[in-house]
Design a protein around this nucleic acid. Sequence first.
RNA 1: GGGCGUAUAGCUCAGCGGAAGAGCGCCCGCCUUACAAGCGGGAAGCCACUGGUUCGAACCCAGUUACGCCCACCA
Length: 868
Amino acid sequence: MSTAEPIELPSQYAPSEVEGPRYERWEKAGYFAADATSGAPAFSIVIPPPNVTGSLHIGHALDHTLMDALVRRRRMQGYNALWLPGMDHAGIATQNVVERELAKEGLSRHDLGREAFVERVWQWKAESGGKILGQMRRLGDSVDWSRERFTMDEGLSRAVQTIFKRLFDDGLIYRAERIINWCPRCLTALSDIEVEHSDDDGELVSIRYGDGDESIVVATTRAETMLGDTAVAVHPDDARYTHLVGKTVELPLTGRRIPIVADEHVDPAFGTGAVKVTPAHDPNDFEIGRRHDLPGLTILDEHGVVTAHGPFQGLDRFEARPAVVRALREDGRIVAEKRPYVHSVGHCSRCGTTVEPRQSLQWFVRVGPLAKAAGDAVRDGRVRLHPPEMNARYFGWVDDMHDWCISRQLWWGHRIPVYYGPNDEVVCVGPGEQPPAGWRQDSDVLDTWFSSALWPFSTLGWPENTADLRTFYPTSVLVTGYDILFFWVARMMMFGLYAMRGQAPADAVPFRVVGLHGLVRDQFGKKMSKSRGNTVDPLDWVDRFGADATRFTLARGANPGGDIAISEEWAAGSRNFCNKLWNAVRFALLNGARRPAAALDPAALSVPDRWILSRLSAVIAETDQLFEAFEFAKVCDTLYHFAWDEVCDWYLELAKVPLASGDEAVARTTRQVLGLVLDQLLRLLHPVMPFVTEELWTALTGEESVMVAPWPAFSLPDPQAEAEISSVMRLVTEIRRFRSDQGLRPGQRVAARLAGIEDSTLAGHEEQIRSLLRLGPPADGFTPSASIEVEGITAELDVAGVIDVAAERRRMEKDLAAARAEAGQAERKLANSDFTARAPAAIVDKTRQRLETAQADIARLEQRLASI
RNA sequence: GGGCGUAUAGCUCAGCGGAAGAGCGCCCGCCUUACAAGCGGGAAGCCACUGGUUCGAACCCAGUUACGCCCACCA
């Protein structure tokens, strides 16, 4: 009720006392849980599953803030909102962690054996995995814990096996001998996206193969691979070498003779125009080898150590390289060396080891038709990317995708459901099926991304036709950083469209909208990295500034697709904003304001009331529109300025007069409006700042939770009140400026007369203007010694003896110069007949008004300058 | 080697065809009874450069320069 007793809050907001208990209460109340049987429209988001080995970093904090804001808003809007949490088993990463643990005990995974090792990983997961889930609670993530999933759990494993079988039966999964990226440390194949390229220093050596007229010079940065050369290739049209094509040359150090072949792939303009061909250790050479039926000679084992080549046997590839060069030099074979030679080198994204291209037998997904469908879904608008500028990148990727190597020589992961018979027969086994007795299963596991590609539907129960799947698929939005648009988003698109293709075409997509945000960077826009020492631990911020401040800082920087620069100062600013809200509500409660129980009586509203309600209406509409457009930064900015600049700086100050007036009817209305405005504001802010809004809103309303309060839909526009209050603001600001310029103490009461106000639109606002400016009434002996004129009202102040005439003159001269410039500009424009004839009438009118205002200012200032 | 993006106040960024904006920082003055995590006032920008389109350009077009990112099997 609006007549409630005053409540006094502490003068500062203490997040740490609020956040833990509030989260627990929400969870216990079941507010996070979605309902598959609800008739309400569904809204669903699946979390990008963090690695089970991971902990919350600032990028997650951003991601989660945005998702939580979307979900919380939808929930308040009455949607059946689901935010589904879970984790990724993170094949290589997790296996590495557990292997490192074993190493401390002096063991390797081979000492345990496969079964025991996998058991050990599960044990590790139970004990130390999922740290990040606890951290999500600290952030305030409103996820449905009852639906938490893990990519290796039983249901998801069934989904993996099911889709593998389908793809296999459709001929979209095949096994082939190919050159793949091999990590000699992790001892597994890697897909292209698990390889990171960097420009490294190397050495380019030119080597002469053969002798005399029958010799040819090739260049390489990987000299050791010459041991595996099985040909030299030249361009078919290269006249320099036509006499050699079809002949053989002696390969130095080996005594082998290798053929010279002609192949279109060779660029005759590059180097000598001759290329050494190592089919087993280079993807291009592999293709050349296939075209010319050349044997592949593997010279490195899985550790990258040279096998069976005389003096080089047993040398690591990086030891073998200089050793081979040395031997060639002694043999007089090196014709040129270039060092350093910068070239692009691939590294394992997990451990940084230089990747070795290696010929081996692996499983692949034939991506052609899948990628085509993934591209089409965006092209025809079934899936929209936000911001749309990301389309080009997306198409660039899906339209030119190479087949995906999905087998990994690891133990932790989904084992490939293929069995081999005694005579190498192959069978792919679906869920529930039994392989023929005695057949052995493929020893490889699947790429982690294979299971995460199923995430939007495997988590909802697919391949069963569950209520969750029917209700929440396709998911509404996918929120993630643009950096994994290709890694993950494109793959979910491929598999989602494939697995769900039985549904209506529009409903097979895994999500309808992809909201892409940028990377979190430091205050200078630099990438965060441990080596730079500029990383931010979001939990440290949660501890020091509160979860809301951390979230607000991130959301406030989140322009669509753009990177986000943050620093501690920004977090402190957000914390200050929390405190500002706290104190605004504190003020309201001290004055007995509460959210009104009944509708307001429009007739009782004062102009300031009508103004703030009108502004509130506009802000609600704007917030809605910005949320729909994923304009999180602008949502935050809009609400920040409304709360601080309008509600606190002006409305609360204006409200002090009626609250102190002693007129109970007037005070009651003000309390009601104050209660209403704060109630609505807190609801608007709740998606981004859940904790402080909850604490304040429950105090203000006495109700259970703002989480389940309806989203604002209030509208009471009042242009007349807005115009009046903006006049008040101009007058007050102008007088404040005068006082400040004149060095008058803000607290000092100055007697003033507001001449002309009785006849102006501001007639009813005199008391408030006096209150805002601490102006006293003109008493006996009042002698105006300075005057400020704004909008036809002349404020005469009795400041004799205090006023600095020179300062005042300077100020007026400055204003005058500005007014003259303004008038001149407008005049010139209006003198241009092209402008008056061709510009829209509204623009011309506006310019005319500008001119008139400026001219009036000039006249006024000139007169006052003359009289001062 | 391809593709994309960005250049606006000291810093980080909005604005994207009709009078240059925000946050932080900076300067001046204030403990004014919600808040000093605060209040009031203020300074600060040839909107990268050069041309073009337009009555009008920070905004559209072309070129230049400088950064940044993504993709790529160049020996």
